[in-house]
C-alpha cells in the first residue's frame, strides 16, 4: 500500500510498528503524569492525616452538587471521545468530527463550571496566599486544604486545557482527511490522554468534595 508507506516514518519498518510505538509512548507518558499528580496526592494524604478536621470542614464548604454535575460532564466528554475513536476506526469522517467537537464543548463546559466554583471561593475569601479570611469559626490550618484544592484542581484544569489544544489539532487533521480506517493512531493516542485526565478527576472528586459525611 503506497499510502501506508508514505505515512511510515523512516525509522520504522512498517505502520504497525509505528502505531505500537506511538501507543506505548503515550502509556509511558501517562506513567510520568501519574507520578506528577502522585506528588500532590502524597501531600494531600499527609495533611489530610494531620489536619483531618480542617480538611473535613474545608471540604464541606465546596458545592457538592456542582462538583457532581461537573464529574458527569467530564464523564460525558470521555464517552464522546470514545465515540470519536470508534468513528475513526470505522473511517466515518463526519461522525468523527461531530464527536470531537462535542468532546471539546463538554470539556469547555467543565472548565466553565470550574471557573464558577473558583469565583465562589474568591467571593468567600477562601483563597490561600491571596485572600484567606473565611467567615465564622473554622479549624486551624484549613487554608492548607484550600491550598491543595487550588493546586490539584488547577493542575487538572491545566491538563484539560492542553487536552483541548490536542483535540483541536486532531480536529484539524480530521478535517484535512488525514485519517483512514487503517491509519488513525493520533486519534487513539489523544483519546488515551483525554481519558486519563478524566481519571484524575474521578479521584479528585471524592478526595476533595467527599471528606466525611455532610
Amino acid at each position: 500500500m503506497p499510502e501506508e508507506l508514505a505515512a511510515t516514518a523512516h525509522q520504522f519498518e512498517d505502520l504497525a510498528q509505528q502505531h505500537e510505538a506511538d501507543e506505548l509512548g503515550m502509556w509511558v507518558f501517562l506513567g510520568t503524569e501519574v507520578m506528577f499528580f502522585g506528588g500532590l496526592f502524597l501531600g494531600y494524604t499527609v495533611y489530610r492525616h494531620v489536619y483531618f478536621g480542617a480538611f473535613e470542614a474545608g471540604s464541606h464548604l465546596l458545592d457538592l452538587l456542582l462538583g457532581a454535575v461537573n464529574t458527569s460532564v467530564l464523564i460525558a466528554s470521555s464517552f464522546t471521545m470514545a465515540l470519536s475513536v470508534y468513528a475513526a476506526q470505522k473511517g466515518r469522517k463526519k461522525t468523527l468530527i461531530t464527536c470531537l467537537i462535542l468532546t471539546m464543548i463538554l470539556g469547555s463546559v467543565f472548565l466553565g463550571i470550574k471557573g464558577v466554583e473558583y469565583g465562589q471561593k474568591f467571593h468567600h475569601h477562601l483563597v490561600p496566599g491571596y485572600d484567606f479570611n473565611p467567615e465564622g469559626n473554622f479549624p486551624a490550618h484549613m487554608s492548607l486544604y484550600f491550598s491543595f484544592y487550588f493546586i490539584m484542581t488547577g493542575m487538572h484544569a491545566l491538563h484539560m486545557i492542553v487536552g483541548e489544544g490536542l483535540l483541536l489539532v486532531v480536529l484539524i487533521l480530521a478535517a484535512k482527511n488525514r485519517f483512514t480506517a487503517a491509519h488513525h493512531a493520533t486519534v487513539e493516542v489523544v483519546g488515551i490522554y483525554w481519558h486519563f485526565v478524566d481519571i484524575i478527576w474521578i479521584f479528585l472528586f471524592p478526595l476533595l468534595y467527599l471528606i466525611g459525611g455532610r
Binding site: T32, E33, M35, F36, F37, G38, G39, L40, G43, P128, G129, Y130, H141, S143, L144, S147, F148, F150, I151
Partner: peptide
C-alpha cells in the same frame, strides 16, 4: 523525575504566594 517536577512547582508556589505547603 515527575515527582521532582511537582516538588519544585510547590516550592515556587510557596515562595510566590505563601500557601503554606
Amino acid at each position: 523525575t515527575p515527582v521532582l517536577a511537582i516538588t519544585i512547582v510547590l516550592v515556587a508556589l510557596e515562595r510566590l504566594f505563601h500557601i503554606g505547603v
